[in-house]
């Protein structure tokens, strides 16, 4: 296996939902400042794995987690850790673009405000900066005060990206972030990701193989709650070692 500096490392992670064993003995490493794509058929536990990275699975009632998830070497399931710090460090982009019920400006400023930035000037600067990074500034700069819900779905997802970036995370998680978008908007989001990997570690869940091929530097193939294979994208796509990986990439199982 290729050597790299892991940003997130998962060891023997087991997740139960009631009696249902959702994730089984997951051990993977997520490389820093690359795009890692988690692929696998629906219901294989991709989203659960993703949400275990920022402890958003804590919200699911009846879930139990064992094992280690380390971010920068820090065990995030350690009881002493402040969850809000972890979540600040790890941004998340949901499947469906979901603006908070407030203005465009307030959506982006929401995170910084939560973390104590209240000076108008500083907020203005942050909002402008991250709307630019998300490629939305030119389209909305004249109507920052209007409700975010008036934007198109593609614009909304870029707004969500800006909102995520505004808390200055190191890692960005995307849970099928283009699945609710039209092809053109989806393309734009993909391009954003490719540009962002200079500065961020990115983990994306997708069930679209072609998207995975376009984006991935590193691939994790998950099947029925288990990691079947993980490694550099080229190896996985061109020369998979496992029969099940081959079958999935060949379109035989879905």
């Amino acid at each position: 296996m290729e050597k790299f500096k892991p940003h997130i490392s998962v060891e023997k992670l087991n997740v139960f939902y009631g009696k249902h064993h959702v994730l089984k003995d997951i051990t993977v490493k997520i490389p820093e400042k690359q795009i890692t794509v988690i692929i696998g058929p629906s219901g294989c536990g991709k989203t659960t794995l993703l949400k275990s990275f920022n402890r958003l699975i804590d919200l699911v009632e009846g879930i139990s987690v064992s094992g280690d998830v380390r971010v920068d070497g820090m065990d995030i399931y350690n009881g002493k850790i402040d969850v809000t710090n972890i979540r600040k460090k790890i941004g998340m982009l949901a499947q469906k673009p979901y603006p908070l019920p407030m203005s465009i400006y307030d959506n982006v400023a929401y995170g910084p405000r939560i973390h104590g930035i209240l000076k108008r000037k500083e907020l203005d600067r942050i909002v402008e900066r991250y709307l630019k990074v998300a490629g939305l500034w030119d389209e909305v700069k004249d109507r920052l005060k209007s409700p975010a819900s008036r934007l198109s779905a593609g614009q909304q997802q870029r707004l969500c990206l800006a909102r995520t970036l505004a808390v200055e995370p190191e890692i960005i998680l995307g849970d099928e972030p283009t699945s609710a978008l039209d092809p053109v908007s989806a393309k734009r989001i993909e391009q954003e990701f490719i540009e962002l990997k200079k500065d961020y570690t990115i983990v994306i869940v997708t069930h679209i193989l072609r998207q995975a091929k376009r984006l991935a530097d590193h691939v994790i193939f998950l099947y029925m709650g288990e990691v079947i294979e993980a490694g550099p994208a080229r190896e996985i796509f061109e020369d998979p070692k496992e029969a099940r990986t081959r079958a999935y990439i060949g379109g035989e199982i879905s």
């Binding site: 958003l56 998340m92 949901a94 019920p101 929401y110 939560i114 973390h115 969500c160």
Partner: peptide, 10 residues
């Protein structure tokens, strides 16, 4: 989603 987004932002 609102809950999730807000919590995910820390």
């Amino acid at each position: 989603e609102v809950r999730e987004i807000s919590l995910a932002l820390g």
